[in-house]
């Protein structure tokens, strides 16, 4: 496993819980640089929980998360902030700041972390919006956009600081198939252009086979990973019926 020597993300023996309820236990995996890595699994198996614990929105009960070799879970608040700067995150709902325009939404991270003049920040914001196909929408408020446009604007914001790692929480949920495929294309484009490491949480089988380099599948009962590898190999080689069923979409009534 020589290519795993310098993983971009390394999760070791992570356990996550809400109050008393243990959701994930003993989760370990590695994400290689510039890889599109999918975390898949049925609803409620803990995908969002894993993501939130990885980026510090929740505190794991046990285990370690390392980014580019540096521990995130045991970092102090200063170096944590430094590392957060190198992440982008696209939330399930987009999570744009509703009181700011799209332009201001994208400008905010730039204002926080750079000392660029206001004029330049505005140009960058317009450029980032254009990259996701939203040119000319700088002055619009999030409430004036459709769900797909909000997700794309959220992506533009996540990419504002040219992060090395971007997290996506169910990017294609609640989007129509065409918009979802366009978003997939954008994700691949970002990776190919900037060499960004990408972690996607999803249960969209088309996306998984379309763009994922590797996947891990979480399971609700096992509270951990039940399959790992390239999507096609996992679908072919797994002897776990749940994995196969998920990846071949054979749920109720599709024998």
């Amino acid at each position: 496993m020589s290519s795993d020597a310098n993983p971009a993300i390394e999760v070791t023996d992570l356990a996550c819980s809400y109050d008393e309820k243990l959701v994930l236990d003993g989760v370990s995996f590695r994400v290689r640089p510039a890889e599109i890595f999918f975390v898949i699994g049925g609803s409620g198996c803990g995908k969002t929980t894993l993501l939130r614990n990885m980026i510090g929105l929740n505190t794991p009960v046990r285990g370690e998360v390392r980014f580019n070799g540096r521990s995130f879970t045991s970092a102090d608040s200063k170096s944590r902030r430094e590392m957060l700067r190198t992440f982008g995150m696209l939330f399930q709902s987009g999570a744009l700041w509703t009181s700011l325009t799209l332009g201001e939404n994208i400008a905010l991270p730039l204002e926080e972390y750079t000392s660029l003049p206001a004029d330049e920040i505005r140009s960058i914001a317009a450029f980032k919006l254009a990259q996701v196909g939203l040119e000319g929408y700088e002055e619009h408020y999030p409430s004036e956009l459709s769900g797909g446009m909000r997700k794309r604007a959220g992506l533009a914001r996540a990419l504002a600081l040219d992060p090395g790692i971007v997290f996506f929480d169910e990017p294609s949920a609640s989007l129509d198939p065409v918009t979802a495929r366009n978003l997939d294309r954008l994700i691949v484009q970002v990776r190919d252009t900037f060499g960004t490491t990408i972690v996607v949480v999803s249960h969209d089988v088309d996306s998984i086979f379309g763009i994922a380099d590797r996947i891990v599948m979480l399971d609700r009962d096992k509270r951990g990973i039940i399959a790992e590898g390239k999507p096609s190999e996992v679908a072919r080689n797994s002897d776990n019926p749940r994995v196969v069923e998920f990846l071949t979409r054979r749920g109720i009534g599709a024998e």
Binding site: L57, R81, L84, Q92, L96, W97
Partner: peptide
């Protein structure tokens, strides 16, 4: 509720 606070936190704000 709209994850906007989380979005601030993930930016380290």
């Amino acid at each position: 509720a709209n994850e906007e606070i989380d979005a601030l936190s993930t930016l380290g704000i």
